[in-house]
Structures are given as structure tokens and as C-alpha cells.
């Protein structure tokens, strides 16, 4: 495996959200990951963005409740 290219904060932050989304190519992913491991400031930023993402993900779940689930089950029984 090639040694990881060292990148600065600007480059790491530019790709941070795509890094958290697992959308970077393998080489760029390793570069950002390596930078975060050695940079306290970017580590804090990464932690914050990940926690905010988790909170948003939680907000994407809405309890359907018994009556709505029953409505969908009734619909499905007609298929």
C-alpha cells in the first residue's frame, strides 16, 4: 500500500462531509482520515459534524403509530 499523502486542514475540511458520507475514493478517504487522526481541531470538527448528522438521521424516523400501520396493512391485504 502506498504511503498516505499528507494534506492540510483546508483540504481535509473541503472533503469532510463526503468523507463522513463514505463518498470519497479510497486514497482521498485515507488522506482525510489520516489528517483527522493527527489534527485536534479537525478531529473536533469531524466529531461535531458526525453528531449533527446522527441527530438529523434520528429526525428522519417518525413513529407511524398503530392506526397508520393498520391503514397500510389493510391496503396491503387488498393486493
Amino acid at each position: 500500500m502506498k504511503p498516505v499523502k499528507t494534506i492540510g486542514c483546508d483540504e481535509a475540511l473541503k472533503h469532510l462531509l463526503e468523507y463522513l458520507d463514505q463518498e470519497l475514493g479510497a486514497a482521498k478517504h485515507r488522506e482525510v482520515e489520516h489528517h483527522i487522526e493527527v489534527c485536534r481541531s479537525c478531529f473536533s470538527r469531524t466529531e461535531f459534524e458526525q453528531r449533527l448528522k446522527n441527530r438529523l438521521r434520528d429526525a428522519g424516523r417518525e413513529s407511524s403509530g398503530e392506526s397508520f400501520e393498520e391503514r397500510i396493512k389493510t391496503l396491503l391485504r387488498r393486493f
Binding site: G60, S63, S64, I72, K73
Partner: peptide, 12 residues
């Protein structure tokens, strides 16, 4: 599958 995803579908 639909019932398993119902909370996510409704959330979206």
C-alpha cells in the same frame, strides 16, 4: 419490508 421501513418512509 414495507412495515419494517414504515417509520423511515413516514419520516421522509
Amino acid at each position: 419490508r414495507v412495515i419494517g421501513l414504515l417509520d423511515e418512509l413516514l419520516g421522509a
